[in-house]
Computed example of a mutant assay.
Amino acid sequence: MLELNDFCINRCCAGGLSLPDFMKLANDVGVHNIELRTDIHHGSNFLDDLSIAEFNNLQRNYDVHVANISAEFNLDDRSDWNTKLKGVTELAEIAQKIGADHILFTPIRNADDIRTDEQKFDDLVHNIRIYSDILGTVGVNGLVEPLGFGDSSLRFPWVAQKVLQEADAKNFKLIADTFHYYKAEVTKKDFDEKVDVNRVGLIHLSSITSEKSPEEADDADRYFISANEEDVMKSIDQANWFKESNYFGLYSFEPCAPEINNWSYDKCKQEIANSIDKIIAG
């Protein structure tokens, strides 16, 4: 059975709050792990212009820990290479200074991408191999999140797993996301037969209550956890896949609907608490 310490909250759970208030929110609901995002900030950077010392003081005061920084890098993009290396290096150094466990990378989404599957695979291997070395020098790990969208260059977890093996990226793991599994129509049978649960480093959870097919569903439809009979993705059932497969890592809530950014502190707090209760109840 899952416990409170098994949960994590992504900053999109309360994107309208300042970073100090978001960290206080995590403490208030009893969650000690958070995910930061480079695309959500109240200032010029994802630390809301706090100094490293100020941010680390907040971590201590609110007893929270950065499990992951979600980066904006297109993982398999080899253009403007020197700028990308500089960006990954700088982010890795910040991650090390704030004690973050991981940096998360996502693949390219581009409907006009003319590369073959083999070229996409080779580009992923090339970049991950180098990023793995950069992160390794400062003791930070990496996460790869396959995106289930049809225009994604990396849709399936077993392909991502093969990429990590080919790159020999021992400090990288996969993210399993119930939304992206729904989009890519990854089944429990697929997961059990094709994915090594030991290569999964984080679970992302959300729910969709509108009657949308995998092809129609978008990030804007993703909310906090709903009962299975209301959720077209059946995220509670998906969460049980991972428990039954002996996954022992964190479960993080990632509701991406833009209107959540307008929600009050108390509403976000209640939705997080309700989501935790639903997942624990199974």
Rank of each mutant, 00 (worst) to 15 (best):
N198A: 11
L205Q: 03
T178D: 07
T83A: 13
S79V: 02
D123K: 14
D177P: 10
D192A: 12
N74H: 15
K97W: 00
A100R: 08
D101F: 05
T209I: 14
I208C: 15
N74R: 14
V186Y: 09
F105S: 05
Y181R: 03
D133I: 11
W81G: 04
V88M: 09
L164W: 01
A92M: 04
K188D: 07
E185N: 10
W81L: 04
H204K: 03
S207L: 02
D101M: 11
D177H: 07
P146I: 00
K86G: 00
E145I: 00
D122V: 08
L124T: 13
A71S: 15
E211V: 11
V163R: 07
I134P: 05
L174F: 03
A71F: 08
A92H: 00
N141S: 12
D117F: 13
L174R: 06
G99L: 04
L202Q: 08
K97A: 09
T187W: 05
E193Y: 09
K173S: 08
I208Q: 11
K183Y: 07
G150N: 09
I128W: 11
L202S: 00
S79N: 14
W158C: 06
A111Y: 12
A169N: 08
R109F: 12
K188N: 14
P107I: 06
Q119P: 03
K97L: 04
V159S: 09
V159K: 12
L154H: 06
K84Y: 11
A184D: 10
E90L: 04
E118L: 09
L205V: 10
I130W: 10
E193A: 09
F172I: 02
T178Q: 05
K86S: 07
W158L: 10
N141L: 04
L104F: 03
T89P: 03
V138M: 07
P157W: 07
A95K: 07
I94V: 12
K84H: 14
G142E: 02
L85P: 10
H180S: 02
P107G: 00
A111N: 09
E118W: 11
N127D: 08
G142M: 09
D112Q: 13
H102I: 00
G201N: 10
K189N: 03
V159T: 14
I208H: 11
T83N: 14
G136N: 06
T178K: 05
L124S: 15
S153W: 11
V140C: 05
R109L: 12
R199I: 12
I103E: 08
R199G: 11
L104V: 04
Y182H: 08
F179D: 10
A160E: 05
Y181C: 08
I103W: 04
N171R: 01
G150C: 00
L174S: 01
D151N: 15
Y181Q: 13
T89M: 00
E145H: 10
R155E: 01
A111H: 09
D177N: 13
I203E: 01
I128M: 08
S207C: 00
D133E: 15
E145V: 01
I98Q: 06
L164N: 01
H126E: 14
T89N: 10
W158D: 13
E211F: 07
L174D: 09
T89W: 05
D133G: 13
I128V: 13
I208N: 12
N74A: 13
